[in-house]
Simulated scan of single mutants.
Amino acid sequence: MYDVVLLTLGSERDAPGGGCGDGGACCSGAAEAAPEKTGERCETPRVPVLACAEALTARGARVETVTARSDAEIDEVLARLDAPPRPDGLTWPDPDGKTRLIVATASDAQLRAVVRRLVRRYAPPPSRRPADLAGNRTVPDLPTIGVLPLDPARSGGQRDLAAQLGLPRDPAAVAAAVLDGTARRLDLLRNDGGSVTLDGALLGAADDQGRPLHWRGRVEVDDAVLSDGEDPILACAIGNAGGYAQLDGLPLLTGPDPTDGVVEVAVAVPVVTRSALGRKKIRFEVRRARGRAVAVIPRDEKVPFLDDGAEGELSRKRSWWTEPGAWAVWTS
Rank of each mutant, 00 (worst) to 15 (best):
144 T>R: 09
144 T>M: 07
147 V>N: 09
150 L>I: 06
150 L>P: 01
151 D>V: 03
152 P>W: 04
153 A>C: 05
153 A>D: 10
154 R>L: 14
154 R>M: 11
156 G>P: 02
157 G>K: 11
159 R>L: 07
159 R>Q: 08
160 D>R: 12
161 L>P: 00
162 A>D: 11
163 A>R: 07
164 Q>V: 08
166 G>D: 05
167 L>W: 01
167 L>A: 05
167 L>M: 04
167 L>P: 05
168 P>Q: 03
168 P>F: 00
170 D>W: 01
171 P>Y: 05
171 P>N: 07
172 A>T: 13
173 A>N: 02
174 V>Y: 02
175 A>W: 00
175 A>E: 02
176 A>Y: 00
176 A>G: 05
177 A>E: 00
177 A>F: 00
179 L>G: 15
181 G>F: 03
183 A>P: 10
183 A>T: 11
183 A>W: 08
183 A>H: 08
184 R>A: 09
185 R>E: 01
185 R>Y: 04
185 R>K: 04
187 D>N: 12
187 D>E: 10
188 L>D: 01
188 L>I: 03
188 L>W: 01
189 L>S: 05
190 R>C: 12
190 R>K: 07
191 N>E: 00
192 D>E: 13
192 D>A: 15
192 D>L: 11
193 G>S: 14
193 G>P: 01
194 G>S: 10
194 G>K: 09
197 T>E: 04
197 T>S: 13
198 L>M: 13
198 L>F: 10
198 L>C: 14
200 G>L: 06
200 G>K: 05
200 G>E: 03
203 L>W: 05
203 L>F: 12
204 G>K: 04
204 G>H: 05
204 G>E: 00
205 A>N: 05
205 A>L: 01
206 A>F: 14
206 A>V: 14
207 D>L: 11
209 Q>C: 11
209 Q>L: 15
211 R>S: 14
211 R>I: 13
212 P>R: 07
214 H>M: 10
215 W>L: 13
216 R>T: 15
216 R>H: 15
217 G>I: 01
219 V>T: 13
220 E>P: 00
221 V>A: 12
221 V>G: 10
222 D>H: 10
224 A>V: 15
224 A>N: 07
224 A>S: 12
225 V>K: 12
225 V>F: 14
226 L>W: 10
227 S>D: 10
227 S>L: 05
